[in-house]
């Protein structure tokens, strides 16, 4: 009877709750439409906020990339150039303590901020290098390239002449035509206009670098080159009608006056000079 009563009770509650809850209505304070409108608003706002943030981030990335690029290329390509005009010599100190002694009428440029990554200089003219031990040291000229580790050497790169003389350590010279030679102290490489390299052994290196002490040696040197050297050292202009191959052997020092030098260079070759203006000399065949 008790079980039965319990069952009836449960049955009653089942029925009652069914009747009580079924078909009731919800009275929400906030309607579905209102919620959807809010969501749409929120979503639009969020979407645009997201793309804004995204584009800001993109812009920031692009800006920092450009900044790094600009800084990098500044460090890489900022160069220092030393030009030595005719009549003077100049000593250039490179960042690692290497020194370059530039002859008159020469120019040297290098990348100071890139120096620690790559020791590379560009030379036109003539210079004596004393290179500190370290990474590869490269001297580029229009006619050839010289690479060393740590040594001292002289490079002459004028017009189509390219001549490297090694004084200590070892030096590798390559021409544009990819010929390569390695120089030991006392040897010299001459790059010919066709790119072939001639190596001369047992050079007297001090005559090669005597220019540093204002002494100029010429051994069977075409007279045009001798005059060019005089022009550079004394900052004068020499005009000449001499076309034929005349070789000169001799030397002079800058302690002497330009006219003294012309005075013994010319007669030895059957030439004579005349002064047209303070810095202009005219050289012709001496008439017998």
């Amino acid at each position: 009877m008790k079980d039965d009563k319990e069952h009836i009770k449960l049955d009653a509650i089942d029925k009652q709750s069914k009747a009580f809850f079924a078909g009731g209505t919800f009275r929400w304070k906030k309607g579905e439409a209102e919620v959807l409108a809010e969501l749409n608003e929120q979503i639009r706002w969020q979407a645009s906020a997201r793309s804004f943030r995204l584009s800001m981030r993109m812009a920031a990335m692009a800006a920092s990339f450009l900044l790094i690029l600009a800084l990098g290329s500044f460090l890489r390509f900022y160069s220092t150039t030393t030009e030595v005009s005719a009549g003077t010599h100049q000593m250039v100190d490179l960042p690692d303590g290497s020194t370059v002694d530039l002859n008159a009428g020469s120019s040297l440029s290098y990348y100071p901020y890139w120096w620690h990554f790559k020791r590379i200089v560009t030379l036109e003219g003539e210079a004596f290098f004393d290179v500190q031990q370290g990474q590869r040291f490269v001297v580029r000229s229009s006619q050839g390239k010289t690479q060393v580790l740590g040594t001292s050497f002289n490079i002459l790169a004028r017009g189509n002449r390219y001549r490297v003389t090694c004084l200590s350590g070892s030096v590798r010279v390559s021409s544009k035509q990819k010929r390569k030679v390695v120089l030991k102290p006392g040897s010299q490489a001459v790059v010919k206009p066709d790119g072939e390299i001639e190596v001369r052994q047992n050079i007297e290196p001090f005559s090669e670098i005597s220019w540093r002490n204002d002494v100029f040696f010429f051994t069977a040197t075409p007279i045009q080159e001798v005059f060019e050297e005089i022009e550079r050292q004394y900052n004068v202009t020499i005009q000449t009608t001499i076309k034929e191959e005349v070789l000169y052997t001799g030397n002079f020092t800058k302690e002497q006056d330009v006219e003294d030098i012309l005075g013994y260079v010319c007669p030895a070759l059957g030439l004579k000079y005349s002064r047209k203006s303070p810095n202009l000399y005219f050289i012709t065949q001496a008439i017998e």
Partner: peptide
């Protein structure tokens, strides 16, 4: 929020 149906 919920209003039951009285008539049932």
């Amino acid at each position: 929020t919920f209003v039951p149906r009285e008539d049932a």
